[in-house]
Amino acid sequence: MKGSWLPISLRETLQCAYSPRPLTSCRQQALNIRPRQFTTASRKQAIAAPEINFRDRRDRDPGRGGWEREREIGYQGGGEEQSAFVARLLPVSPSYFTAQPLFTDDFLVLQNLMTKHSGLPCVKPGEHPRVAWRSLSEYRDRVGETVKAAKYHKIVEILVRLNKIHPSVRPEEVQTALDQYKRNIDPFKNEQKTAQVDSLGRTLGAGRRKSATARAWLVEGTGEVLVNGKSLADAFGRVHDRESVIWALKATNRIDKYNVWALSMGGGTTGQAEALTLAVGKALMAHEPALKPALRRAGCLTRDPKRVERKKPGHVKARKMPAWVKR
């Protein structure tokens, strides 16, 4: 969800809606109107100079820079007990004066981490765990700044480098930093389930087409096909539909090697027949995984996503317009 170009107040709402987990847990988000530019206080150990002991400084340092001097003025009346009187709000992070202060902070945090842990051993090339990082638009929404792609890519580069540190020696802080940039859902964990041959020698495949769904069980046999308890000729009147059902077997020359027992429901005859193509194809692939390229070429593994196009207002059907009438 892109929200970079929205007004700040709306961005806040968007972020609440889309981010259950804060990007940086340390970032202060208590206030409704987030004082972004002033809330880097807890990170300044990492970024800016160490915290200033004003009393010492006042004694010691005659030539002080602008923002520190102002802070000093702020504390002039406070004295020892550090009362909350603030004459003027001060930026906590020096990044305040950059174009993208939050991005700069994030970048510096990661860069420091990288330099700090650059000596740690890495895993062998290609053996590091695959991680899907947050996308640029997601990051932009988080920070609410106009971050360029190239800039964000620098962050990702550092993340990739940090990810190569061997997991057994990876420091806690590195891990937390990495976790902050990981996508909520790890797409690489989603492994496709492969159908197995069961104890009775059957494999099950499922397929869909239009609004029809089909399941097909395949066993080694002599080429008998039953669809919903009926033979192919009874189940489908069109020869083309019948051919669709056993297309996976025909394309691989295995019609007389397997028996098919299938159930199909929903949709029309063509939908059911072509849903069965997919189901039989997948079931066959479970028997013989080596047939995958052949089946892919025969179009027995790809779900056709086309559906009925919806009707539009002002149209008679999806595209059809009413007849033109003069006045």
Partner: peptide, 23 residues
């Protein structure tokens, strides 16, 4: 051959003669 016969036989709903002829 066996392949074509098996195909026609299956498409004809387990060898319904008229369907084999039709196909």
């Amino acid at each position: 051959d066996e392949q074509t016969v098996a195909e026609r036989w299956a498409l004809a709903g387990h060898g319904v003669a008229a369907e084999i002829q039709r196909g």
